[in-house]
Design a binder for these strands. Structure first.
Lengths: 181, 181
DNA sequence: CAGAGACCATACTCGTAAGTATGGTTCCGT
DNA sequence: ACGGAACCATACTTACGAGTATGGTCTCTG
């Protein structure tokens, strides 16, 4: 017996955040509109302004949600039982590929919003620490700098896609490149 | 009726483009508002809509202006009488630092506008070709890939600023890094 | 000097998205 | 059952920026 009570929607605060999260991935922070989300959820603004004081409160909730998810992912990498540092770096790459669209949206958002910038900065700090640790484990010199360049080259791909004439390197090749000579 | 003989405005189409150009650097493409520019130029919208059909025409003029300026700069590098490839790369770095703010604004713009994306892609193609040429001159392997990673790491700095605890490397150190072993 | 065209000001319309006011419905405890 | 709180719909107001309509003023030219 499904509760097909479609007549009365009833949406929770969490649902709003989730919908906004999806919309963030699809069209970025400016694409998050109250009316659009309401239509997607099958309700109206009346619902929104009961759960939230205003739009900025939704956005802050979004940042919170992202920060937690992100922290969990990084901790999952850190405490994951993967002894080989090289393999750990590969997992970081894989994770990055999964959340690419979301990550991109967050970084673009951070370009014009101090709160988002702070959240991203915080997440990057943890990520850089993790990468640096892997590099030092591999006895790579200048680990902090290499980690930073590695991450920058990665997110730089958001701004500069791979040209057609340039063969896109495999993740392993990229890793080897930043591991140096 | 004394008409307070203020210095009568009179603004050219070029002035509008120039003002928009400055505003682009300061607050990005969404920050380019007709009224704001008009106030800045000491005129009103009436002037604007005489010189331009609409806002998009101004933006296209902006892209044109940028493309030309950019082409000139790259050509200046290409035909500059600098035999040493290493020195040429250094000049590219220096140029990048000069136009960083503008470059950043253009790339952010390109994230949500196909025309801007096309302009940036075109400019990048030329730039990558130039860098690749320098690298091959230096007998560096995988020149195209390295050139791409170099540029990505550079623009990645727009999205990930240097953390406080990480000593920012000198331009020469960065160059050495991408020149490999 | 007269008129035409270039240039601009003023005062609107219009579309959009955020935010508000208010009342209606459902649920839940006593 | 009933009264209040949770939840939502409807209709409204506001703010803002793009775009339009129209007429005024300057300048140049015949």
């Amino acid at each position: 017996m499904e509760t097909a009570k479609r007549a009365r929607p009833r949406v929770s605060r969490r649902d709003w955040v989730e919908a906004a999260y999806q919309e963030l991935v699809r069209s970025g922070e400016p694409g998050i509109g109250i009316n659009a989300l309401a239509a997607r959820l099958g309700v109206t603004k009346g619902s929104f302004y009961w759960h939230f004081r205003d739009r900025s409160e939704l956005l802050r909730a979004l940042l919170d949600r992202w920060a937690h998810e992100r922290t969990d992912e990084v901790l999952g990498l850190a405490f994951g039982t993967t002894p080989d540092p090289r393999e750990r770096l590969r997992r970081i790459q894989a994770l990055g590929a999964e959340v690419a669209s979301l990550d991109r949206a967050m970084r673009l958002w951070a370009q014009h919003d101090p709160d988002a910038a702070e959240a991203v900065r915080h997440a990057d700090r943890a990520m850089l620490g993790h990468i640096t640790a892997c590099l030092t484990d591999l006895a790579v010199p200048d680990a902090p700098l290499r980690a930073l360049l590695m991450l920058r080259a990665w997110v730089g791909g958001y701004l500069i896609p791979t040209p057609e004439d340039t063969p896109s390197a495999t993740p392993d090749e990229l890793l080897d490149f930043f591991l140096g000579p």
